[in-house]
Computed example of a mutant assay.
Amino acid sequence: MELGLEEQVFARILTFGKALGSQGACIAGPQVLREYLLNFSRPFIYTTALPPLAIATLAAAYQMLPNMQQERQRLFALSDLLKTTLNAVPGLHVPEESHIIHPVFFPDHAGPAHVKAVAQAAQAQGFDVRAILPPTVPAGTERLRLIVHSYNTEAEIEGLAAVLGRIN
């Protein structure tokens, strides 16, 4: 939309997980793409339609999305707070360009064992922190993966930073 190229896009893949709280995905495009996929896409031919509950969830989500400005603002503020707070913890680095889903790197410690131990220790303190390890990411780029939600609190973010600071 920003560049005004919408009409030049042949196909769009829309996913229904995470933000929409459902499952599945779809491909949106012109009739020729639809006909091609219906007739020649083996994975599509052998899949089943989304269950009615998933369709109802998507319909409700799409009705709610235009009216969630306040929730978005809160989410973005919490996301910024998480970056600022974790970047103040010695030995942690969250890239400034990360947004909502944050990788947390350990520049002073190398290796998957350390990242895995930090994740497990944070989990033991009640935080849903995931270690992302090779082969998912290249060796030497191990990290934690944190996702901010609009229902998180400032206290939870500060508590997570304290835990990560202690166990790092």
Rank of each mutant, 00 (worst) to 15 (best):
V115R: 03
E97D: 14
V163A: 05
S98R: 01
R145Q: 12
P135A: 12
D108V: 04
I101N: 08
T136C: 11
A110L: 12
T153Y: 09
A139R: 10
H109Q: 15
L144K: 00
V115P: 00
P134W: 03
I101Y: 04
Q125T: 08
P95L: 11
L146Q: 06
F106N: 00
N152Q: 15
T153S: 15
A88C: 05
A124H: 12
R143F: 04
P138L: 08
G91E: 07
V137A: 09
I101M: 13
A117N: 11
E97W: 09
T153W: 10
E96D: 14
L146Y: 01
V148K: 05
P107V: 01
Y151R: 14
V94R: 00
R145L: 08
E154S: 14
K116P: 03
I100G: 02
H93F: 07
V115G: 00
I147Y: 05
V129H: 02
S150Y: 10
A113G: 09
H109C: 08
P95D: 05
A124M: 13
V104N: 00
F105L: 07
H114V: 02
V137N: 02
F105S: 04
P135S: 14
L160F: 04
F106G: 01
G159Y: 04
S98M: 09
R130H: 15
R145G: 10
P135M: 12
S98E: 04
E158R: 12
A155M: 10
I100C: 07
E156A: 12
H93T: 03
V94F: 01
D108A: 08
H114L: 02
V89N: 00
R145F: 03
A124R: 15
R143I: 03
E142G: 02
A131T: 05
P90N: 08
A117H: 08
V129P: 03
A117E: 10
G159D: 10
L133N: 05
A121Q: 13
Q120L: 15
